[in-house]
Simulated assay, not measured.
Amino acid sequence: MSRSWGERIFDTSNSIFLILLSLVTLYPFLFVLIASLSDPAWIVQVRGLIWYPKGFNWEAYIMVFKNPSIITGYLNTILYVILGTSLNILMTSLGAYALSRQDVMWKNPVMFMIVFTMFFSGGLIPTYLLINDLGMVDTRWALLIPTAMSAYNLIIMRTSFQAVPVSLEESAKLDGANDFTILFRVILPLSMPVVAVMVLFYGVSHWNAWFNALIYLRTRDLYPLQLILREILITNSTESMTTGVGGADKMPIGETIKYATIIVATAPILLLYPFLQKYFVKGIMIGAIKG
């Protein structure tokens, strides 16, 4: 089918706009990557845009990985992501399954109370007092239990479960399946796109989380990577990684260490996204609120 000149102009303009938008979005990350691989003295002096590393070196990355706090933070963050995401998927799927069944009593009032929490909350101080009274302050549980389920993600998964034909559930019950069997062997396998999206949402949330750790944790051995990154970027605490560097060179290498730390903290979650991208749009569309 031939296209009119107006359609061709629109498609061309749209493509140019999206390419420029992609460059504007991508360039800050490229700038950080290039700066982390460049000569520290040059990075301190340069102003404006940079497009390639000058004086290519890995010194900043070597110093970053020699820092025991970053290694500990990495391991803690991986642990929080694995345990937290697993708990999130379990709690969200259980809640979504119960609220998506037609024969569940009081599901509408329960759903109203869940949605209510999206608009109103007790606030930081009551939440801290509750976590403290439960004995979870300065423990890993303070980062896992309070965020065990997201109301927004629960709504998405509940809507996805409602799209599964009721006849499948009835057939499973005729074969002697209970609710747990139906959920884990019928509903979830048919809802893998939305589950993949939930894994992405929860995983990114846990990877980037730092505020709860700042509020509830006191022991540095429990700090996640993002809290260590915050210390390096905001409080400028790169002295421990520049031991043995001459006084005049400490400030330049400290700047490249900051850039290298950002890349180290960001790259793993960026590498995860391509594997879940094919499920992303489909999962959101399946779990979209229909009305």
Rank of each mutant, 00 (worst) to 15 (best):
Asn76Ile: 06
Asn76Leu: 09
Asn76Pro: 03
Asn76Tyr: 05
Thr77Pro: 04
Thr77Leu: 12
Ile78Phe: 09
Ile78Tyr: 06
Ile78Trp: 10
Ile78Val: 15
Ile78Asn: 08
Ile78Gln: 06
Leu79Met: 14
Leu79Lys: 15
Tyr80Gly: 14
Tyr80Asp: 15
Val81Thr: 13
Ile82Gln: 10
Ile82Asp: 11
Leu83Tyr: 06
Leu83Arg: 02
Leu83Glu: 13
Gly84Asp: 14
Thr85His: 12
Thr85Lys: 09
Thr85Glu: 13
Thr85Gln: 10
Thr85Leu: 12
Thr85Ile: 08
Ser86Ile: 15
Ser86Pro: 00
Ser86Tyr: 09
Leu87Phe: 13
Leu87Ile: 15
Leu87Tyr: 09
Asn88Thr: 12
Asn88Arg: 04
Asn88Gln: 03
Asn88Trp: 08
Ile89Cys: 13
Ile89Glu: 11
Leu90Glu: 13
Met91Ile: 15
Thr92Arg: 09
Thr92Asn: 13
Thr92Met: 15
Thr92Gln: 14
Ser93His: 14
Leu94Val: 13
Leu94Tyr: 11
Leu94Asn: 13
Gly95Met: 12
Gly95Phe: 08
Ala96Trp: 07
Tyr97Gly: 08
Ala98Trp: 05
Ala98Thr: 14
Leu99Arg: 07
Ser100Val: 00
Ser100Ala: 10
Ser100Asn: 03
Ser100Trp: 05
Ser100Tyr: 04
Ser100Arg: 00
Ser100Glu: 03
Arg101Glu: 06
Arg101Thr: 08
Gln102Met: 10
Gln102Ala: 08
Gln102Gly: 10
Gln102Lys: 12
Asp103Met: 06
Asp103Cys: 00
Val104Phe: 04
Val104Leu: 10
Val104Asp: 03
Met105Pro: 10
Met105Thr: 06
Met105Phe: 11
Trp106Pro: 01
Trp106Gln: 03
Trp106His: 01
Lys107Thr: 07
Lys107Asn: 04
Lys107Trp: 02
Asn108Ala: 05
Pro109Gly: 05
Pro109Lys: 02
Pro109Trp: 03
Pro109Val: 02
Val110Gly: 00
Val110Glu: 00
Val110Asn: 01
Val110Ser: 05
Met111Trp: 10
Phe112Leu: 04
Phe112Asp: 02
Phe112Pro: 00
Phe112Lys: 03
Phe112Asn: 01
Met113Ser: 13
Met113Cys: 02
Met113Asp: 04
Met113Pro: 04
Met113Gln: 09
Ile114Asp: 01
Ile114Ala: 04
Ile114Leu: 07
Ile114Lys: 00
Ile114Val: 11
Ile114Glu: 04
Ile114Asn: 03
Val115Thr: 12
Val115Met: 12
Val115Ala: 12
Val115Lys: 02
Phe116Leu: 02
Thr117His: 01
Thr117Ala: 02
Met118Tyr: 07
Met118Phe: 01
Phe119Trp: 02
Phe120Leu: 05
Phe120Ser: 03
Phe120Asp: 05
Ser121Phe: 03
Ser121Leu: 00
Gly122Leu: 00
Gly122Cys: 03
Gly123Ile: 06
Gly123Cys: 09
Gly123Leu: 12
Gly123Phe: 09
Gly123His: 08
Leu124Arg: 07
Ile125Ala: 01
Ile125Glu: 01
Pro126Asn: 10
Thr127Val: 04
Thr127Gln: 13
Thr127Asp: 11
Tyr128Ile: 07
Tyr128Gln: 07
Leu129Asn: 15
Leu129Ala: 14
Leu130Met: 04
Leu130Ile: 08
Ile131Thr: 14
Ile131Phe: 14
Asn132Arg: 14
Asn132Cys: 06
Asn132Glu: 14
Asn132Lys: 14
Asp133Cys: 00
Leu134Asp: 03
Leu134Cys: 02
